[in-house]
């Protein structure tokens, strides 16, 4: 795998170089997928906090199922939806580890709802990265709990009908009602400004864990260009114009 060595060309100083906690492996995401940006931000946060040697990631089942190949830290593959329970088991077994789970909307807000709600309610001292791209990408574009009303998917060919499938599930608002969580925020990565804000939020979520503040969750409203059938730049605009209507950005709970 060819990688650009981080040696600065003669007479130049580095401004941005590839995060150290990333492995050499190529990302398996589709071109322009926001998972890739989020995965990169995750590595930037781990670098910034210097915790790669004590971090354990939980890989989900979904488009990020290969997450463990992209990092230089220890990883555990969880069954679909069970990442928050697996993370709980690891953190309780060895509280010195920095434990994060990375999950999609199907993983966290459909099959994994109970595990997520109760890990949050216990105030489990873990960091959860929740990628909300309103679709089941890996399995071919099915409706997710966060699919927008009227949105076409392979399981809502005529568009999501709220009368039979309900409304998009706002997990962050739900979790923010609980006492347990220390930090619940919703971010996005459809432009550089939002990428920078999302980066700060992820770092803060890990910082909370380092300081033992309890459960932190960063929801990121993301684009799946493949299933939106839009070019990556257009998919980003679609998130900004459509998805944010249902999933307003901002901090929903911050306990200092």
């Amino acid at each position: 795998m060819s990688t650009v060595e981080a040696k600065a060309p003669a007479g130049f100083a580095p401004v941005y170089t590839r995060p150290k906690s990333l492995s050499a492996a190529r990302f398996t995401y589709c071109p322009g997928c926001h998972h890739g940006i989020i995965t990169r931000l995750l590595a930037e946060a781990i670098d910034e906090l210097g915790i790669v040697e004590r971090t354990v990631g939980i890989a989900p089942v979904g488009c990020a199922v290969f997450l463990y190949e992209f990092f230089r830290c220890d990883f555990v593959q969880a069954a679909h939806g069970r990442a928050c329970a697996v993370a709980t088991g690891i953190k309780r077994a060895n509280p010195d580890l920095i434990v994060f789970s990375y999950q999609g909307d199907g993983d966290l807000a459909a099959i994994g709802t109970a595990e997520t709600v109760h890990a949050a309610n216990r105030g489990e001292n873990i960091t959860v990265i929740f990628v909300n791209n309103q679709i089941y990408g890996m399995t071919g574009g099915e409706m997710a709990p966060t699919t927008l009303p009227g949105m076409r998917t392979v399981t809502t060919p005529e568009g999501r009908d709220v009368r039979t499938t309900g409304y998009p599930l706002r997990m962050s608002e739900m979790l923010a009602q609980l006492e347990g969580p220390a930090y619940i925020t919703r971010q996005a990565v459809f432009d550089v400004r939002h990428v920078q804000m999302a980066r700060k939020a992820i770092i803060k979520a890990f910082q909370n864990q380092i300081e033992g503040k309890g459960f932190s969750l960063v929801e990121i409203v993301a684009a799946c260009p493949t299933n939106l059938r839009l070019s990556p730049p257009e998919a980003g605009r679609w998130v900004a114009e459509q998805a944010l209507k249902y999933f307003p950005l901002g901090d929903l709970k911050v306990r200092e």
Partner: peptide, 26 residues
């Protein structure tokens, strides 16, 4: 030791999975 009552047997066995992965008798 750690005693934790989970929200379901499904969660409990996955917590076992995590603790075992972390190298603890569980």
């Amino acid at each position: 030791g750690v005693f934790l009552q989970a929200e379901s047997e499904v969660a409990a066995i996955n917590m076992v999975y995590g603790a075992a992965a972390a190298g603890v008798r569980t």
